[in-house]
Design a protein around this nucleic acid. Structure first.
Lengths: 328, 328
DNA sequence: TACGCTTATGCAAACGTTTGCATAAAGTAT
DNA sequence: ATACTTTATGCAAACGTTTGCATAAGCGTA
């Protein structure tokens, strides 16, 4: 069917070994300039495409890295995928994508074919998966706000981010600050929740206005309307992420609440959408570029040196102040 | 290092062939219930994970499909990736993602390892790539508004969508309708452009208010402000996509233009963001679910029967009418 | 008992590479 | 001219599977 190394060898009049050395690049320096040229030429003419399965079989490496995304809904996720794919590609790797949020054992399938794994969020999923992976010696780098401490990881310090955000709301004069969060992430230990709790407590206020709903804009919009009816309007809302912030924004505007005059609003993540609302939202921007780049570098290092020391980084998000918290 | 079929064979006391038949599933019916159990058990105990490279080498198939995304910026793209990955996964395939917009020959690298290709948009890129792929017999399905006619494809009828959108603007009383488009896609033959041209001409109007800029929100916002200064305000704008529509919305609001009273606005694609603006945008929703599902089915069929007839589908987008065009 | 048929298993080749080792040729120093 | 080094190439085993073909055992029938 497709052209092999042997055919090229016969065509040129050398051994398969020689062809391999030229074409794989690994032994090219051993080969004379003249034959190297002829082999190259022949490969070109015959349209040679290496059989990567065969190559993997003998080298033991596949040139593929798995990217495990916990979710894949928003432009935020698209950006992560794009950045990772780009960096991996530059280093000669292909990217196998897998969305692990819904399928419990999804990731295991086809695991035998990757050189390593890059995991974005999905902490609970990961902490289950990690032990067996470790036993098997599969390199894994975890990244995001929930990066796993026991692996190589690049963590984004959202506790710090949340602290800054809530502090910012306090400085803007807010005294009754709500936290809008998705139901799964509201437990203590969640960095944004902790930031909210402690910053308010430190200011002598009670962190008790928690609005739990699901991750979607529609649900957030509804939840905000619901709660303001039942418990009265807060004067500031700190949102778990930008999607929810946009939902909140929507819900408030529907009820004629003025932003930031009646309620100040802060989101989290730094997606583009927050900038294009009538009242642009203050948000905590995650440094995705650095995160992805570092994660890829960590993984590469780990693949090269399986027993090197654990690598980790803590990146600081930046508070981007816009109209939704200004000029109250 | 990792456990092989031979080790299991020795452990159980049968031949590697038997183990293979059980574990690959391909010959399991030939094996007695008793040994089948024992082999399963042993595989479990030893933590067997098949070496997919070896398997590919002999079977000639890899179980991997490449997903070529022309771009990977917005939630629209994230959704395509998610849907495709999901459908492929259900059919036992892994998804190799590649973003082909910037890197000219990017996709070729690593081509030797996929069973087929699913390409979203990127028509010009694809038409270059198609010939060599065809010669090599690589199954390819193209999808989106610019799906390639000479391959298996799932096309979304944006000409029709554009026609409906512009018609809708006319019915809303607009008489000076602009077309906001990214510079690369403004040539004739572009379905949205054609829809704009012909619908206006049919109504006896001149399709001449073209605003060309780049794909980003920021650029769109700027372009709209610029053009309204120089050429006066249109009373309706049809936008190449939702991102640009949001940019336009932003630019108009900055200048205090009322939507839809002064200018009616229609976007294209159907991303969620359009719904959460203060004035929700009318848009043409692309049926991504059907598109992705069909594309995966086409590809599967093509892989199974390389010489079957060409498959194609034409899907209709739906005009979602919201406040940005209503109540003028 | 002998024969044929079915069922369960093993043997060994093949898939397309890479790579350690051997070897031949050419060059260099004595 | 000899010995030794360097350079260029070939040989053949190995990587871990799958699978066509052969074979052995078990069983029913004549």
């Amino acid at each position: 069917m497709s052209v092999t190394i042997k055919q090229i060898a016969k065509y040129v009049g050398v051994s398969p070994a020689t062809v391999s050395r030229v074409l794989s690049g690994r032994g090219a320096h051993l080969i004379s300039e003249a034959t190297r040229q002829r082999v190259w030429q022949a490969a070109q003419e015959l349209g040679y495409q290496p059989n990567l399965a065969a190559r993997s079989l003998v080298t033991g490496r596949t040139g593929i890295v798995a990217l495990w995304m916990h979710e894949l809904f928003t432009s935020f996720h698209a950006r992560v995928v794009q950045l990772v794919e780009d960096h991996l590609h530059q280093r000669g790797y292909d990217t196998l994508i897998r969305c692990v949020s819904r399928l419990p054992k999804a990731a295991w399938h086809g695991l035998g074919r990757v050189d390593g794994i890059l995991a974005h969020e999905g902490a609970t999923y990961l902490s289950d998966a990690w032990r067996p992976l470790q036993r098997r010696g599969v390199p894994l780098v975890s990244m995001g706000a929930y990066a796993l401490a026991e692996t190589d990881h690049v963590r984004i310090d959202l506790y710090r981010g949340a602290t800054q955000a809530v502090q910012h709301l306090l400085e803007a004069g807010c005294r009754r600050i709500a936290y809008l969060v998705n139901a799964e992430a509201r437990y203590v230990g969640e960095p944004r929740r902790d930031g909210y709790d402690r910053t308010l407590s430190a200011a002598g206020l009670t962190p008790e206005y928690i609005v739990a709903t699901d991750q979607s804009r529609a649900a957030s919009s509804l939840a905000v309307r619901c709660h303001m009816q039942e418990r009265g309007l807060p004067d500031g809302i700190f949102c778990h992420n930008d999607e929810m912030a946009i939902g909140a924004y929507h819900g408030l505007r529907l009820r004629g609440v003025r932003i930031p005059d009646d309620v100040a609003l802060v989101g989290c993540d730094g997606i583009e959408d927050t900038e294009y609302l009538d009242v642009p939202l203050t948000t905590i921007r995650q440094p995705l570029e650095e995160m992805c780049q570092l994660a890829v570098e960590f993984l590469k290092k780990r693949i090269a040196e399986p027993h090197a020391e654990r690598q980790s980084a803590l990146l600081q998000p930046v508070l981007v102040i816009r109209a939704s918290t200004q000029g109250r």
